[in-house]
Amino acid sequence: MLALQHVHHIAIIGSDYEVSKRFYTKVLGLTVIQEVYRAERQSYKLDLALHGQYVIELFSFPNPPARPSRPEATGLRHLAFAVADVQATVDALQKHGIEAEPIRTDELTGKTFTFIADPDGLPIEFYAS
């Protein structure tokens, strides 16, 4: 068995770097650790943290292909964040003009959750902690 310790990071490619950067930093509130432009790849790499812990690499590439479908395409299904209050999260998102799906209750845990989409349609879940 492998001796995995924890998830190191999640990598996301945005179709419009500035739009994605604004969403992940200004809307979701992740903080920038480091931003690098890699000229040989015509690509930005933005390292983002949540409460000081490195969690997301945001990339830009010229002309990336679109995500095939939402959310049942092969590959990453969605990104989920734990929140103390799902309704308060929905209210805060609305202030940024982002509409969330109706709040649901997980029939297995009894916890509430909802989904939004990032600027490229990647499903993002907010799940009551």
Rank of each mutant, 00 (worst) to 15 (best):
V83K: 11
Y54P: 00
R104D: 10
E101V: 08
G97Y: 11
P68W: 04
A80R: 00
L93D: 05
N63I: 07
H51R: 12
S43V: 00
A39Y: 06
P64D: 09
E35D: 00
S60D: 06
R41E: 15
L50I: 09
A66F: 01
Q94F: 12
P68T: 05
Q34N: 07
D91T: 13
V55C: 13
F81C: 12
I98W: 10
V86G: 07
R41L: 15
Q53M: 04
R41N: 06
D47M: 15
R38V: 06
K45C: 02
V55W: 01
L93Q: 13
A39Q: 14
R70P: 00
H51C: 08
G75R: 06
G75I: 07
Y37E: 01
V83E: 11
H96C: 06
L76Q: 01
L48G: 02
K45V: 06
F61M: 05
A100G: 08
P64F: 07
L58F: 03
L76M: 15
E40C: 04
F59R: 05
F59Y: 12
V36K: 04
G52P: 00
V90Y: 06
E107V: 09
P64M: 08
T105L: 10
R70L: 11
R104T: 09
P62K: 09
T89R: 12
V86P: 13
S60A: 05
V36Q: 00
Q53I: 02
D47H: 01
L58R: 02
D106S: 09
L108S: 09
A66S: 07
E107C: 03
H96A: 04
I56M: 02
F81Y: 13
G75V: 09
P102Q: 06
L108I: 04
Q53G: 01
L93E: 06
E107H: 10
P102R: 10
L58S: 02
L108E: 13
F61E: 07
T89P: 10
